[in-house]
Write a protein that binds this DNA or RNA. Structure first.
Lengths: 304, 304
DNA sequence: GAAATTTTGTAATATTCTCTTCAGCAATGT
DNA sequence: ACATTGCTGAAGAGAATATTACAAAATTTC
């Protein structure tokens, strides 16, 4: 069993700072673990003893032992047949003008795969718990683009619990919501690179008021990571001047899935039924068309 | 220039024992160099000072410096997209309550792959042309969830052309925009299943006014497909009571990529520069950490 | 074949890294 | 509110590692 799997599916329960280490390690696997223990600790924003303790928790004699294992992994992977193929990979550099969209989709796919392998299950579980265990309000905030993701998550969460509040565009007035927030509340903030000053500032103010913070960011970490309780990272780089948001969307959906899974069976069933009903209600609209003819579809549409 | 090439094509003359080291290093590259200097020396049958001297001869400050370079090489090779795919998938099927989030991510990944292979390039090209060739206004509309995707696309398009208008929540008032629309205008509508009556109705009214329609929907086709000029479908089913929007997001991003590719070179470059500048502005925040040491990162984060 | 030069290893030193101890802190239960 | 438990980081001891200094081989040169 290689180290990556130990981290992803390991049966050991991790403390928050240990989790941060794991996240760093997975995001930049295995290079992040091949330096010194102290460098890894700094990157994760924890102290070196914590790194050492994690190594031991994983069953190693100490950090160097873990490192040796990591090295073995590298070796194995570098000699894998896949890497041989890699050598003759077509140069992605040429946008080729023609298949730009297709090339882009491929690039997103590999991005998603990266996301898949770089976030441990525990992070999702923690996020789910954080959201559902919060007694007070849950406030959502995002940047220029990511505010749409915040909106999506808000729309989902509305169905699971009350007191959801999405701050769409950050204005001076909106900052006022802060006065009502305290340590029983949760701020879910999305901040991918080109970290927006106003968003960071808002989060900082919230942190000062002891509001708990759940941060979604990229592997380079928004400054907000400094004072967030839990940080979920997600790769965003693709061959385009813009970054992709597809993986981020998948990620919040995954959190939703995790919330659903951890719910009481009855509660979950009620929600599933609810969706089922909504689906049927709309399906009746155009089912006929799909199964039979086109005419009924138009008919049903003109009826209301 | 990576270390391997330095060793292979280096212009420096090597002493016999140095050559032995190089040989070992190349035989097991780069793993052999990632341990301690002493371990490498032993494998080559020489003493450790010889190893250190070689490192310096190659232009490094010392052995650790060479090691850092070696690590960078590994990272570059390991981060190639293809290799990310290799990270094997755990057994699906077992929803297991535990790994709900992970299972979900896998399911999204395969969904995306499906999207990848089921939409021809021509569709993206036509969508791109449709958007950019429209002389009049471009109005965007979505449903309960998909309106966020509409919002994203609107945010992107704003940078490419004027007269972009996102109808966020559909109200009676908003329907009024219809009176200003005609056959020179374009309606981009997102309508995934649980096709919303109001959205369909709006599209229908637009169609009646001869507004051109670009529809994003799922493979079961929204009724709007009946009167849209171009329909892009995208699979949305995953193992969850909800549908995924990740692929849809990827899809609109792909359209953006296609638009960028089909633009005049100069125009595109200007936009890319713009993004580049935005990126650097924020990157300067924490770049130091990634390229050099850990210290500056923490410093920069606390500094503002 | 001896001196000069280069190469190499041993030993001592300097540096860096790991890991233990301990005390502070927050969360949780009584 | 108080005690308990577990998590965390600061500090420093101790170990491992890299590097320097120097002397012994080996090689070359005359």
């Amino acid at each position: 069993m290689n180290v990556r799997d130990m981290l992803l599916h390991g049966a050991i329960s991790l403390t928050p700072s240990e989790e941060r280490i794991v996240q760093v390690l997975l995001t930049d696997y295995p290079a992040a673990g091949l330096g010194t223990a102290t460098s890894l600790a700094k990157r994760a924003g924890v102290s070196d003893p914590t790194v050492v303790r994690l190594a031991m928790k994983l069953g190693f004699e100490g950090f160097p032992a873990l490192q040796r294992r990591l090295l073995a992994d590298v070796e194995a992977r570098l000699h894998s047949p896949l890497l041989m193929m890699e050598a003759k990979r077509p140069d992605m550099g040429t946008h080729s003008e023609q298949g730009a969209a297709i090339a882009y989709m491929h690039s997103v796919a590999s991005n998603l795969n990266k996301a898949l392998t770089s976030t441990p299950l525990a992070s999702y579980q923690r996020a789910a718990r954080l959201v559902m265990d919060t007694k007070g309000k849950v406030v959502l905030l995002g940047g220029r683009y990511s505010r749409f993701i915040a909106g999506m998550l808000a729309a989902y969460l509305l169905q699971f619990r009350p007191d959801i509040m999405h701050i769409d565009a950050l204005s001076a007035q909106k900052t006022d919501v802060l006065v009502d927030l305290g340590k029983r509340d949760l701020l879910i903030v999305f901040d991918y690179r080109r970290y927006q000053l106003d968003v960071v500032a808002f989060a900082q103010l919230a942190a000062a008021r002891r509001v708990r913070i759940l941060l979604f960011t990229d592997p380079w970490l928004s400054p907000i990571a400094e004072f967030s309780e839990l940080t979920l990272t997600c790769p965003i780089e693709v061959n385009s001047p813009y970054d992709t948001m597809a993986s981020s969307v998948a990620q919040i959906e995954a959190v939703i899935a995790q919330i659903l899974a951890s719910m009481e069976k009855r509660t979950r069933e009620r929600i599933e039924e609810l969706e089922e009903i909504r689906l049927q209600a709309s399906a009746s609209l155009d089912n006929a068309r799909l199964l039979e003819e086109e005419k009924p579809a138009l008919a049903s549409m003109t009826t209301k």
